[in-house]
């Protein structure tokens, strides 16, 4: 039987700012190399999401102006379906702006409150246009090793009591620059500020997502190892650069 990963990419034209394309290319490549079929569906404004049609849902980052339009669409068109998908155990990966919008709410720099989907028990607030942005290389200690990436966000994210961060910050700012947490995990939903792109340089995390997504539908699943030498070199170089320079904010 041919296995198939069905990926829904939400708002690819609006939420695509920090090389989010790399995440899609990575999922596709790591499936195809293992003979797993890969089916990509792009869902833009106004298009409905059917929770049972997908194994993995990805939403990337955007600028505030785009985020406002997406928040509106999430409230009117897709939010309920995303909550249903999360409840069914569909894997969700939300990066940066997408992560913020899948929390309970996001108060943007101008004070306006954008409603969130509520997949993650957290809320985000931007302290105002003059506030320092959290910008720089990040290294996070995660259950499966280290994660490397780049963060660039004005919003500070605060997790509800009992919600687990994705990892602990080794270098960088993370959710709020304060509590040492980065990202969030709620069931099979993963949120993070890391881009760069996230998945190509973190192949183990990419495989974890693919495996978790497919386990729901396939009992017998073997994740054959891939030649990750270039990936590991890029990962190691990123760890080195981030920890040697420490936290630099521009």
């Amino acid at each position: 039987m041919t296995l198939k990963l069905r990926l829904a990419h939400l708002y690819p034209k609006l939420m695509n700012i920090y090389g989010d394309r790399g995440n899609i290319l990575c999922l596709e490549r790591r499936c195809r190399e293992r003979g797993i079929a890969f089916e990509l569906t792009e869902l833009g404004l106004g298009e409905k999401l059917k929770p049972k049609d997908y194994d993995l849902v990805f939403i990337g980052g955007a600028q505030d102006r785009e985020q406002r339009r997406v928040a509106e669409d999430l409230a009117k068109v897709k939010g309920k379906a995303i909550r249903e998908a999360a409840a069914k155990g569909v894997v969700i990966l939300a990066v940066c702006g997408g992560y913020q919008l899948l929390g309970r709410h996001y108060r943007i720099a101008e004070g306006e409150e954008l409603p969130g989907v509520g997949v993650f028990g957290l809320w985000t607030e931007h302290p105002g246009p003059g506030a320092k942005r959290f910008i720089g290389n990040v290294v996070v200690e995660w259950a499966g090793g280290t994660l490397v990436g780049f963060e660039n966000h004005g919003g500070r994210t605060h997790l509800d009591a009992g919600v687990e961060p994705l990892g602990r910050v080794v270098a960088g700012f993370g959710n709020n620059g304060d509590d040492g947490g980065e990202g969030a995990v709620c069931g099979n939903a993963y949120g993070t500020y890391l881009h760069g792109s996230l998945l190509p340089k973190n192949p183990r995390f990419a495989d974890h997502l693919i495996e978790t997504a497919l386990r729901r539908r396939y009992k017998y699943l073997e994740m054959a190892p891939l030649d990750d030498r270039v990936e590991e070199m890029a990962h190691a170089a990123a760890v080195r650069l981030a920890t040697r320079r420490g936290i630099i904010s521009v």
């Binding site: 695509n16 920090y18 090389g19 290319l25 290389n137 780049f150 630099i248 521009v250």
Partner: peptide, 15 residues
């Protein structure tokens, strides 16, 4: 390179 004058974020190469 990823110095300040280059742009410290290299994500752009994915686009």
């Amino acid at each position: 390179n990823d110095d300040i004058a280059d742009g410290r974020d290299v994500s752009w190469i994915w686009d």
